[in-house]
Design a binder for these strands. Structure first.
Length: 456
RNA sequence: GGCGCCGUACCCAAGUGGCUAAGGGAGAGGUCUGCAAAACCUUUAUUCAGCGGUUCGAUUCCGCUCGGCGCCUCCA
């Protein structure tokens, strides 16, 4: 049977996944920049990465998952212009930059937990790895791949021939065009060169000593330094949003491979945008929805997780409230399943169905197709088994739903049944409303009145 | 200027060179009920933006047109 296949941005094809170590799969995922709340578009990517790590486990690998927290502020360009978002955020909230970073890191971890996203084995803060970054920059200088100027240490892209590979950049086209990338800024020698370490920028609050003067690291270097520290020179899988392909990941490869001489990443996976009003949801824009906003509107966080499963991770997903309603309603139906009533009874039939579901998952994480199959097959046993990947908390919710009804609730049910015997419908309806308000659904069936805790 | 993506029913969407174009939601009808809710059953695209081409055959491959979007600057 075919194993796990993943779309690799490097090869632009779906490739069989073979980790370096047959037991263990290392993955590095670009984490949040903690100057504001994560929005649900950011969270979509973390849900994708979580399903990936769960899929690895289902296929028999032990995931070792590293995620960074970008808590160093970064200016909007290589030149000393624009504003540091951390500084801006800190001023907005009357906090210092360190407090700001911790506040949003904590909020982000809470969102991750609400979405049933498993905690990565390592969550590392950029500010706690400055020494590693400095050491890496020194190594690049020793190897002649970087140069020091008056304003920064730059990576010399001209010395790294494979620079354009991941993004399949047309370097000449970039130079001929009018985009921001071509502009010659600061003291760098070539427009494509990028900063590894900035110096002499008094407006930047977070500063550290370095061999080149007091300053702070370039944005890309943290991922190279930390992934190397926790996962070694070569990583099995590196994930991030599609926006990172052209600059961030391109630069990470240059730095990492320049320093180690080893391939940096074997499989590059990139998650697509969440769209709102047909545009990408962005942190700076107006179309910014947080998980808290969804919860405040009465949605279960797992309904958002389930919503993410509507589309493939490499497709744009259009967010609408109607679509979120559809997801929550669909999840509610799943939570109403009866595990004692399974249409699949024969072991052979179950094995076939299971193989079909697993194949859709292993085909580059085609979770929408997998969910469709699970719906069509309608086997609670399969739903429960594959919830190891879906993470919808099925077993727990079913247990919660079927838990014994507390005495005080049972008393109301009894009262209502007596009212019904008296054909006192208004009293009966009043008691039903009371039960509903307490989170219980009442159903009058031919077998009598049934009462169940509502779990979504 | 360069690179790239998308356009499938009312909504969110999966998918394939040729079997009935998944699934969910909404809508409609029904079962159940005192009435409900939930659940369950039935139903909803002769058609995959448009026009050409390749092919015995295309929604799926190629080209063009129209429409929407992204990256190249911080960005999931």
């Amino acid at each position: 049977m075919a194993g796990l296949r993943l779309y690799n941005t490097l090869t632009r094809s779906v490739d069989e996944f073979i980790p370096q170590d047959p037991q263990r799969a290392g993955m590095y995922c670009c984490g949040p920049t903690v100057y504001n709340y994560a929005h649900i578009g950011n969270l979509r990517t973390y849900v994708f990465e979580d399903t990936l790590r769960r899929t690895l486990r289902l296929n028999g690998y032990t995931p070792f998952h590293v995620m960074n927290i970008t808590d160093v502020g970064h200016l909007e360009s290589d030149a000393d212009e624009g504003e540091d978002k951390m500084v801006k955020g800190a001023r907005r909230e009357g906090l210092d930059v360190w407090q700001l970073a911790r506040k949003y890191e904590t909020a982000w971890l809470a969102d991750m937990a609400l979405l049933n996203i498993e905690r990565p084995e390592v969550i590392c803060r950029a500010t706690e790895h400055i020494d590693d970054m400095v050491a890496l920059v020194e190594r690049l200088l020793e190897r002649g791949l970087a140069y020091v100027t008056s304003d920064a240490v730059y990576f010399d892209t001209g010395r790294f021939p494979r620079y354009a590979d991941l993004a399949r950049l047309d370097l000449h086209g970039l130079q001929a065009g009018a985009g921001g990338r071509v502009s010659q800024q600061g003291a760098k020698r070539h427009p494509n060169d990028f900063a590894l370490w900035f110096m002499g920028r008094p407006r930047h609050i977070m500063q550290w000593d370095s061999p080149w003067g007091r300053g702070y690291p370039g944005w890309h270097i943290e991922c190279s330094a930390m992934s190397m520290k926790y996962l070694g020179a070569t990583i099995d899988i590196h994930c991030g949003g599609v926006d990172h392909i052209q600059v961030h990941h391109t630069n990470e490869i240059a730095q990492s491979e320049g320093a180690t001489g080893q391939p940096f990443v074997r499989y590059w996976l990139h998650g697509q945008w969440l769209l709102i009003d047909s545009e990408k949801m962005s942190k700076s824009g107006e179309n910014f929805l947080t998980l808290k906003t969804l919860c405040d509107r009465g949605y279960d966080p797992l309904a958002y997780r389930f919503f993410c499963f509507q589309a493939h991770y490499r497709s744009e997903l259009r967010f609408t409230w109607e679509a979120l309603d559809a997801a929550q309603q669909g999840l509610r139906r799943i939570y109403s399943m009866d595990p004692s009533d399974d249409p699949i009874k024969e072991p052979a039939e179950r094995a076939d169905a299971r193989a079909e579901v697993l194949d859709s998952l292993n085909n580059d994480l085609n979770i929408p197709q997998m969910v469709g199959l699970l719906n069509r097959i309608g086997s609670p046993a399969l739903w429960l088994e594959f919830d190891a990947v879906l993470g919808l908390d099925l077993a727990a919710r079913l247990a919660q739903r079927d838990a014994d009804v507390p005495q005080e609730i049972q008393n109301i049910v009894d009262q209502r049944n007596e009212a019904r015997k008296r054909r006192d419908w208004s009293e009966s309806d009043r008691l039903r409303d009371e039960l509903t308000a307490m989170g219980y659904d009442v159903a009058d069936t031919p077998r009598g009145t049934e009462i169940r805790k509502r779990v979504i």
